[in-house]
Design a protein around this nucleic acid. Structure first.
Lengths: 238, 238
DNA sequence: GTCTATAGCTCGATAGAC
DNA sequence: GTCTATCGAGCTATAGAC
């Protein structure tokens, strides 16, 4: 008990390395299990098994199931806001939106579990992220909406309600992570490949830029190598 | 036991009316509790309390928690496909899309719990709706995508990937039900009124029609009475 | 057909040996 | 710092009185 506090701060010692590795393993396993089963559906035993550790160790490192869940969420929220940083008054709207949508689609491809944990949390009331939503996220949206309003006022893009335009981008890009099962079943595919995501990203960009009244010419074509996906990208699937 | 089977079919008897009413109360309560807590987080006691019935009655009518959940889902899936029916080759693209988006937004406003139950099911793997997705929904999407492809080929709307265009509409419209907590917190609002939804629907329509390359002139203005929402619709919220 | 009381089980959490 | 063994809360489901 006396050592626990010391180990937490003193991460330079050999024990600190093991602690950090175990914490990392547990967080990664927890993110996946919470994504697949939700908070209530996830069990500490499932998480322990996926992390390759005894159940008691989870409680040793994180105390309660609630504490572990909050740690997973904190991890996710931290990265959630990052990619929107490039919205600045002087930036080019088409280039900025292209970069942002691409980053969001890439997040849906590489960290689908994070998106699902967040979606699940919001879906069920978001009690654990109330402050994040009402303070951090609201402040960010206010700031970025002002940038978009500026672009609209300057005639650099079509008139849009800035906040709803951001909601639309979130809804569409996160949909590819959160509803992947539906997308795969409807398209008749077992998995969505990197090439599929490149094609889907290009189409999302086309729709978003058109909705923003920006010329399609500014969209970089994805250039999918035909060698890897013989003839059928997800866009010509049937 | 002998009577149970009889009652199920013979709904004209006095007992049939009580049964139907109780089943209805339970389904309605269950939809709400499953939406708020997810399948695993919902308890039969919660559902019973909200339905105003003893817990044992739920098991009398529906057997197991799984059976009740499937009944709730079946209810939802049935209405899920209805509003897309008006996609026909000869229909006007702008009018059809306007009606469809409006119907989807209206569903998000009036039956948010249904949307959340479905979202939760998909989010966690969709094992209970696999056949629905791979058969009914896929067939419907194939048919409607063909209609959209026809519109595009005839030059009646801008070129889009029909399936992804449908995904975009679903993602955006359902977002207003599934992520209502986030939307409210970011906009700094306690509730979303009917007027808010009218304004949000108009903006979604504007974005969707622009993405489809259709003239905005064809969008019916929502005409929100200023008397009820003094000056600030959700679109001029800050 | 309705409801109370409870059996049986799963899971979060912890005591205590190592 | 690690892990096994187990306690106890809370849940689904049902038996059995009415």
């Amino acid at each position: 008990m006396a050592r626990t506090a010391a180990d937490t701060t003193d991460t330079t010692q050999p024990q600190g390395r093991i602690r950090r590795e175990n914490v990392e393993r547990i967080l990664k396993a927890a993110e996946r299990v919470f994504a697949e089963a939700g908070f209530a559906g996830a069990t500490m035993a499932d998480i322990a098994e996926r992390a390759g550790l005894p159940k008691a160790n989870l409680h040793y490192y994180f105390g309660t199931k609630d504490d572990l869940y909050r740690a997973v969420l904190d991890n996710i929220l931290q990265m959630w806001l990052a990619p929107i940083g490039s919205f600045t008054p002087d930036a080019d709207p088409a280039a900025t939106l292209t970069a942002y949508v691409t980053a969001k689609m890439e997040a849906s491809r590489t960290r689908p579990h994070a998106s699902k944990v967040f979606a699940n949390e919001i879906l069920h009331g978001g009690t654990q992220v109330e402050r994040f939503l009402a303070e951090d996220l609201k402040a960010l949206v206010d700031a970025k909406a002002a940038v978009i309003d500026g672009w609209v006022a300057a005639g650099r893009m079509a008139p849009v309600d800035a906040r709803q335009f951001l909601f639309m981008i979130w809804a569409v890009t996160q949909h590819y992570a959160d509803f992947d099962v539906q997308i795969r079943k409807v398209l008749g595919r077992r998995t969505l490949t990197r090439q599929d995501f490149a094609a889907m990203t290009a189409e999302v960009l086309r729709l978003v830029l058109r909705a923003a009244g920006l010329p399609e010419a500014q969209i970089p074509e994805p250039q999918i190598a035909d060698s890897e996906t013989p003839t059928d990208s997800v866009l010509s699937n049937l």
